[in-house]
Amino acid sequence: MKKILPFLFLFALPLFSNAETADDILTKVLTKLNSVKDYKVSATIKANIPMIKILPNEATIYFKQKDKFKVESKGITILPKQGFTDINNFLAKKNYIAVINDTITTGGVKTYLMSVIPNSAGGEMILAKLWIDPERSVIMKSQITTKSNGTVTTSYTYGDQVKYGLPSKMVFEIDIKKFKLPKSVASDINKSSAEKKKKIGNKGTITITLTDYQVNKGLNDSIFK
C-alpha cells in the first residue's frame, strides 16, 4: 500500500492542477460580459410588488461600457435599483475574495455557488452570492447584499445571446420591508384602522423579458444624456 500511495498522488496531481479556482471562473464570466461593448434591447417589465399596482410595460434598455445605462419607456416603469450593471462593475474592479461554497443544480443546470466578498469596506457591496454555470460561463442566479438597498436576488434565463452572457429573462426578488408610506397618506379617512392593518407580503418580484438584442452595433453617447 505504501508503494502505491506515491503513484496515486502523482496521478491525482494533474487533476488538482486543472481544477478551476473561483477567480478563474469569475474571470471567464467577466471576459464574456466585457465582450459586450454596447447593446440595445426591448424589454417587457412586469412588476408584482405588494404595495405597488402597475400594469406590464414595454421599454427599451440601452447599455454602453463601462457603466452607461438608460431605460426609455412611454409610460412609467419600475426597475430594481441594482442588478443590471452592478455585478459587472464590481467584478471588473477585481477587488474581492471569491470562494466556491458548493455545487448546486439550479433550473436543471449544474452551478458553482460562490461567495464574493469585497476586500475593502468602503464600497456599497457587502456580499455577493453567485450561482455560476461553468460550462457556459454565465451567472444563473445572484444574491447581492448592499449597505443601502438590502438584498436583491436575481434569477437569469439565457437564450440566443448566451455567447455574450446576456440574459433573455431576469427575475428580481425584492425585499419590501423597508417600504413605508408617508403618514399623511397612511391616515386615509376613508379606511378604517382594521383595513389599514391589512397584512402584506415582504417580497416582491420584477420580471424583465428581454428580446431583440442589438449587441455591439455602436451606440452614441448622446442617447445616455
Binding site: I52, V71, S73, I76, T77, I78, L79, D175, K178
Partner: peptide, 12 residues
C-alpha cells in the same frame, strides 16, 4: 421610501 430599492423611469 420605494426609491431605496427601486427606480422609477418615464415621464412622471
Amino acid at each position: 421610501s420605494f426609491e431605496q430599492t427601486l427606480t422609477f423611469n418615464g415621464h412622471i
